[in-house]
Amino acid sequence: MQIRAITPDDHAALFALWQRTPGIQLRAEDEYAPFCRYLARNPGLSLLVEDEGAAVACLLVGHDGRRGYLQHLLVDESWRGRSLARALLDEALARLADLGVHKSHVFVLRDAPEALAFWLAQAGWGEREDIAVFSTRSE
């Protein structure tokens, strides 16, 4: 197994992994073209764990120059319990720190109990109660 940067060629395998993972909500931004733009804007930050060429875990990582943003952290069900999520998280935070980005955010769906439990168990991460998140989508 190895952790490596995600490339555009990984999209099909990752999309299939996202589709079969409960708690991941896919949107138009997860399609191929937006995925490629995201990777180009944030080179070398999004990460993949693969075993014999198969994607078993991933984390999308971006930043705005001040804050890191983590999305779609997941481990395929048969690979859970091996600290892969923590390894991806540690590597992502180290790569962001190398760029001078020392604070990060993750948005977790309230109806994803496994994801919520993971983030609540992570040292140094805390649920924000002082802000609300608002979103829009322009066409």
Results as ranks from 00 to 15, higher is better:
M1P: 11
Q2T: 14
A5R: 03
I6D: 05
P8K: 07
P8I: 08
P8S: 10
D9T: 12
L14C: 14
L14E: 08
F15T: 08
L17Q: 07
R20C: 00
R20W: 06
G23T: 05
L26K: 12
R27F: 10
A28Y: 07
E29D: 12
A33I: 13
P34H: 14
R37E: 13
L39A: 10
A40R: 05
A40I: 07
A40G: 04
N42L: 08
S46M: 06
D51K: 07
A54H: 04
A54I: 09
A54E: 14
G62W: 10
H63A: 01
D64W: 11
R66Y: 12
R67E: 11
L70G: 06
Q71T: 13
Q71P: 00
H72N: 15
H72M: 12
S78M: 06
L84S: 11
A87P: 00
L88W: 02
L89W: 11
D90N: 14
E91R: 12
E91G: 02
A94L: 07
A94E: 03
R95W: 04
R95M: 02
L96R: 01
L99N: 01
G100M: 03
K103A: 10
F107T: 11
L109T: 06
R110G: 09
P113I: 09
P113V: 07
A115G: 15
L116S: 13
A117T: 13
W119I: 05
Q122P: 08
G124T: 13
W125V: 15
E127H: 11
R128Y: 02
E129C: 03
D130L: 01
I131D: 05
I131G: 01
A132I: 05
V133D: 01
S135Y: 01
R137E: 15
S138W: 06
